[in-house]
């Protein structure tokens, strides 16, 4: 017995028992790594993450800090940045176009996002009733979400809501006269862009639909047996159980809408016209940074945007505790 086990331990025994699957030479080492829990795993993980870490440092975190620094300087790309302290922020306080862009953006976000989510929820509820052809309807309503951010659609909107556009032609056929050129009228231009954003309600709708699927059918059956009407079932079952999804959509759409740029740029010929009525915050930032090459001021605007979006998102999460329902436990 002992002799035999001694023999198996001799080095000569190793080639006599080749790895069964003719693996590459370092196979035994690999096996050991598997048995001892993951010695080299950390290093491997950093290898897998290397591109992301480099990107995070150079493309994301670096520029965030870079724009914080530049926001305290006067910088036009031609000469090195010159430290001016809080100068840019002081200018901002007295800059009427800054306030105008804030107002335009807030009106846009707080009108279009609730409308968009309301449409999305209403259509999702209508489609969740067990109708045939759900996939077809979902595709039809979803398509505008994919196209809505494109220049082509913004161009189309400019024609449709122009003085001689599709909308006015249709309204004239119905007997209306003295119609405004919607996109060139300061009272209506922003409204046309709000309509464009509402038109893209398809993507939150698809998320709502998936959420409605998760609500167990038996809740509704039980409620129906107890005599709850459709309205009662909606407010007591659907709405609370869907509230995490509503919250999710709300956060996503709020952040997304703050960043709208393309539609306003194309519809207003890149100037926020007429009379700055479509001067979105991002558009103003672009004009200062890449129109006037006032990079310091643009960076200050960028940081204020970051703060606004951050504070709003944080507020959203805080308020959510009072209305979002995450199950009984």
């Amino acid at each position: 017995m002992t002799e035999l086990s001694d023999e198996t331990r001799t080095p000569a025994a190793v080639p006599a028992h080749p790895p069964p699957r003719s693996a590459s030479p370092p196979a035994p080492a690999r096996r050991r790594r598997w048995r001892l829990p993951q010695v080299g795993e950390r290093k491997v993980a950093y290898l897998f993450l290397a591109p992301w870490f480099i990107g995070l440092a150079l493309i994301t975190i670096g520029p965030i800090l870079g724009s914080l620094y530049l926001s305290f300087t006067d910088y036009s790309l031609l000469a090195p940045p010159e430290w001016t302290g809080l100068d840019n922020y002081e200018r901002m306080v007295t800059d009427p176009r800054f306030y105008q862009s804030l107002q335009v953006t807030f009106v846009y976000v707080f009108v279009s996002v609730p409308l968009q989510l309301a449409f999305a929820l209403a259509l999702a509820l209508a489609l969740d009733k067990g109708l045939r052809g759900l996939a077809f309807y979902r595709s039809v309503y979803y398509l505008p979400s994919l196209l809505g951010a494109s220049v082509a659609i913004a161009v189309l909107w400019r024609q449709m809501f122009g003085a001689e556009g599709l909308i006015n032609a249709a309204l004239e056929n119905l007997g209306f006269t003295d119609l405004p050129g919607w996109v060139s009228d300061p009272d209506y231009a922003l409204g046309t862009i709000i309509i464009l954003n509402v038109w893209t309600f398809g993507s939150p709708m698809v998320i709502f639909l998936a959420g409605l699927r998760q609500i167990p059918q038996m809740y509704y059956e039980a409620a129906a047996i107890d005599g709850a009407g459709a309205l009662r079932r909606f407010f007591s079952i659907t709405l609370p159980l869907l509230s995490p999804i509503i919250f999710f959509n709300l956060v996503l759409q709020l952040i997304g809408s703050f960043q709208s740029f393309t539609q306003a740029f194309v519809i207003s010929s890149g100037r926020g016209s007429p009379a700055d009525s479509t001067l979105f915050y991002t558009l103003y930032l672009y004009l200062r940074g890449f129109g006037n090459f006032d990079m310091g001021y643009a960076s200050a605007l960028a940081w204020v945007l970051l703060l606004i979006v951050g504070v709003l998102t944080a507020a959203n999460f805080l308020v959510s505790r009072f209305w979002v329902f995450y199950g009984d436990d």
Partner: peptide
């Protein structure tokens, strides 16, 4: 951090990115 960068508006980083790429 990764999830946070999903939410980050590109406008916040565009100026320094432009400087870097320039």
């Amino acid at each position: 951090v990764m999830l946070g960068t999903i939410m980050l508006p590109i406008h916040v980083v565009i100026v320094p990115q432009y400087v870097l790429f320039a």
